[in-house]
């Protein structure tokens, strides 16, 4: 049963892919080659990020992280979240392992949620693409609305969730 559950999403998507290929072979093969492309993209970013997460886990002292992103870090927490999220690269799923490590090390939920928000709306490399496509004013509005909004989402999440019970499964551990 556990195995079925583990591969449920993958199985459903494979069936959709087969269906698409049956209806339109062109689009099916296109989807498959695009999947291959993003597999390469994933391997160009994810493994080093996971090693980084592992190293942070082993080397960064809890006390230090609490100072930077803990309950009393105040403005410093905002700055650290901005730097971590803004200098990042890659899609959102790469941010999750980082977020969970920060939480485990004692970071406040507010700054971790804000970090995820920064990651999605204000990543520097992507902001440059945005400026090129839509200009400065548009980008400025997008980034400011995103940052203000996700900061308050963070404030709300901090009240809503208990940091001790939030981390459901430690994906870094050895046991199954």
């Amino acid at each position: 049963m556990a195995i079925i559950k583990r591969f449920r999403a993958l199985t459903i998507l494979s069936i959709i892919l087969l269906g698409l290929t049956w209806i339109s072979p062109d689009r099916g093969t296109n989807a498959l080659s695009l999947t291959g492309d993003s597999l390469i993209d994933m391997f160009s970013l994810l493994p080093p990020i996971l090693v980084l997460v592992g190293l942070i886990d082993q080397w960064v002292d809890k006390k230090v992280l609490i100072k930077f992103m803990g309950d009393d870090s105040k403005f410093l927490g905002v700055i650290v979240a901005l730097l971590l999220g803004g200098l990042a690269a890659g899609p959102m799923y790469i941010a999750f392992p980082i977020a969970i490590t920060l939480l485990k090390k004692g970071a406040n939920i507010r700054y971790v949620v804000f970090f995820l928000g920064v990651w999605t709306t204000a990543k520097l490399p992507i902001v440059l693409f945005e400026v090129a496509a839509f200009g400065w004013q548009y980008t400025f509005i997008h980034v400011s609305v995103g940052l203000i909004f996700f900061y308050f989402v963070g404030v709300f999440f901090e009240k809503r969730f208990d940091p001790k019970t939030l981390v459901k499964e430690d994906i870094t551990s050895n046991d199954k």
Partner: peptide, 21 residues
Amino acid sequence: ALMKAKNMLVKLAPELLAILL
């Protein structure tokens, strides 16, 4: 640290493949 990185990759592999598909 490296073991942890490997574990994460293995545990998230089905979800990651689903995302890529």
